[in-house]
């Protein structure tokens, strides 16, 4: 009985969490502009969505910036994590605190500070500034994904590689990087997801003509309801779902291999903690 009550409670919370999304998705197939009424099934909004120049170009921008910023952030962040892992004392603490700064700062503060910088330095707001901003807020998450992997490493692996004749550079490429690859990939995916999800920082650091999906959705939603957004939501949600499944399957497979213990759920929480600057 108690167990039943407990379960019902969780289902109720799930209903609260999923209902808006479900409604959004269902109404993306509704052949009526008024949301309350069901006017029959249609794919009209999807067709219109793909014919909408603004949305399509912002989709392109989002993908381009997502992929580029994720890759650059992953490179810089991975190298940084290795450096941080090998530094000590004050240096390490200082760098770690600066790393946490954009994670803990309200997004809007990061956003306006970057905007001030770009305007101050006379960089035209647009693709470049968006990219720089996205790389900036992505790097810390890459570092935070890679560092735990480095800590798990046997601390003699690097020395073992040197011992077997590798130069330091070879040891890095042939041993350290492959050993922490799971963390690097997690960081890459996380950076990509955060980038396509970002609104606040993009909103402040973009300029005339360049718009990401989030910004486009915002300006459309501000003008009221638009079924094309529903169609877009459905596609994006499905996409994110697929991405999540891929990540989870990957993790599950790794756990089977026994490389990182059983931390799947914890890891989700962590990458998810990471997302909290959302508003």
């Amino acid at each position: 009985m108690v167990r039943f009550l407990k379960r019902s409670y969780i289902y109720l919370v799930f209903a609260f969490l999923y209902m808006p999304i479900a409604v959004l998705m269902v109404y993306s197939f509704n052949d009526s502009r008024s949301r309350g009424v069901w006017g029959g099934f249609t794919l009209r909004w999807y067709v219109e969505l793909f014919q909408d120049r603004t949305i399509m170009s912002s989709l392109y921008s989002t993908m381009f910036i997502g992929v580029t910023s994720a890759i650059i952030a992953t490179i810089i962040g991975t190298l940084a994590a290795i450096g941080i892992h090998n530094s000590r004392g004050i240096q390490k603490r200082l760098i770690m605190n600066i790393t946490y700064l954009p994670v803990l700062n309200p997004e809007i503060v990061t956003a306006i500070s970057l905007m001030i910088l770009f305007v101050f330095a006379n960089v035209r707001l647009g693709y470049l500034t968006l990219l720089l901003a996205h790389i900036t807020f992505n790097i810390p998450y890459v570092i935070l994904s890679v560092l735990p992997k480095l800590r798990q490493l046997n601390k003699h692996l690097y020395e073992a590689a040197l011992d077997l004749g590798s130069t330091p550079v070879q040891a890095l490429w042939k041993v350290i990087i492959p050993e922490i690859m799971p963390g690097i990939i997690t960081g890459l995916l996380l950076a990509f997801t955060l980038s396509i999800d970002d609104f606040v920082i993009s909103f402040f650091t973009t300029g005339s003509g360049v718009s990401t999906l989030s910004i486009t959705i915002y300006s459309m939603a501000r003008r009221g309801i638009n079924p094309k957004i529903n169609a877009l939501s459905t596609i994006m949600f499905t996409f994110v779902l697929l991405l999540l499944i891929v990540v989870n399957v990957r993790q599950a497979r790794e756990e089977k291999k026994g490389r990182n213990g059983r931390h799947g759920s914890k890891k989700q929480i962590r990458s998810f903690d990471a997302k909290f600057g959302d508003a």
């Binding site: 999304i21 999800d197 609104f199 959705i217 939603a221 877009l232 939501s233 997302k275 959302d278 508003a279």
Partner: peptide, 11 residues
């Protein structure tokens, strides 16, 4: 939570 934040609010 992995759904775009704006879309969640828009919903």
């Amino acid at each position: 939570m992995w759904m775009n934040f704006l879309l969640r609010t828009y919903a």
